[in-house]
Amino acid sequence: MTSLILSTAARYMLPLLLLFSVFLLLRGHNEPGGGFVGGLVAAAAFSLYAIAYDVATARRVLGIDPRFLIGLGLLVALGSGVVSLAQGLPFMTGLWSEYAWPILGKVGTPLLFDIGVYLVVIGVTLTIIFALAEA
């Protein structure tokens, strides 16, 4: 069941939703949002693609195995915790850069952790949704 309206809309919605998910991710530090919701929105974007076309197409658009994303996300999250160990502070102590970036402000390890969560959520959600849709 392919619908012309849905498949055309999905093509335009995908970049918009991804952009929105990154917005949610970056906003999450001080305001409602964060890696989890951002990841869900991004996963929803690819799921929409899978509904509008099929899972194989959605996988091709994603480009990499969602399970690889889980590993990558965990790696980033673990890295954010280990940074403080290297400085002799307890595991997962929050550290921030001195320099304030435009838009982002001071970048710290919590943001890194959130990016890890973002990637893990995309990976887990898409693994499950693709598995459900393919079976």
């Binding site: 989890f36 887990v124 959600t125 499950i128 598995a131 459900l132 079976a135």
Partner: peptide, 16 residues
């Protein structure tokens, strides 16, 4: 968040 993950898995499980 934990419940989300577990229940999503459970749905896949009952389908299989």
């Amino acid at each position: 968040v934990i419940g989300f993950g577990v229940q999503a898995f459970a749905v896949v499980l009952i389908k299989r």
